[in-house]
């Protein structure tokens, strides 16, 4: 892929990847780094890209996977840091929420997290998620149900009827 193609790819899809990374990671710098990681992967994978899905769809999946990896890795590192340096300042409620959500994404099985991200963050409907992940709508429904139950248990999130 030449420089001009890379620039065009970046211009077209960069803001989309950045927005999703900021939402999922909650940190501007981490999101900026994530954009670079995603595009490096895109550039490496581009020669083998078969066009079976659109680039947008493919980048959605790559970003989701990389962000989930980062959240799981970050939670591990934060715990190690907290063991060595106990926090003296009280944590804000929004930060607590954020930590709670990240813990949820870290603890729950990956396939539940993916479905929840597409459903709640990207506002996809269930058949869209089923198509994206290559699973049945029933499986999507079951995974969402399982995720909601786990979230309610851990975060006290209100129950929401499945669509």
């Amino acid at each position: 892929m030449d420089q001009a193609s890379m620039d065009a790819l970046y211009r077209t899809y960069g803001s989309m990847v950045l927005r999703r990374a900021r939402t999922l990671l909650g940190d501007d710098h981490a999101a900026q780094d994530m954009v670079q990681e995603v595009f490096m992967k895109a550039i490496r994978a581009f020669p083998g890209f078969r066009g079976e899905s659109s680039l947008t769809t493919w980048l959605y999946q790559v970003t989701t996977n990389h962000c989930l990896n980062a959240i799981r890795d970050g939670a591990r590192r934060r715990r190690a840091l907290e063991r060595r340096m106990p926090a003296e300042e009280p944590i804000s409620s929004s930060a607590e929420d954020r930590v709670g959500v990240e813990e949820l994404l870290r603890q729950l099985p990956r396939e539940l997290c993916e479905v929840a991200i597409y459903y709640y963050v990207d506002q996809m409907n269930q058949d869209e998620i089923a198509e994206l992940l290559g699973i049945s709508e029933r499986t999507v429904r079951n995974r969402l149900k399982e995720f909601r139950e786990a979230a309610r248990e851990r975060l006290g999130a209100p129950e929401e009827a499945a669509g």
Binding site: R19, T56, Y60, V101, Y118, Q123, G163
Partner: peptide, 28 residues
């Protein structure tokens, strides 16, 4: 910037997802 919220959806399931809208923005 959007908060990471897993308690409720922002749009109805009959609405267009961000994926569809992003594809429109990208010219797909």
């Amino acid at each position: 910037r959007a908060e990471l919220n897993f308690s409720k959806r922002l749009r109805d399931e009959s609405c267009l997802s961000d994926l569809v809208l992003d594809r429109l923005v990208a010219g797909e």
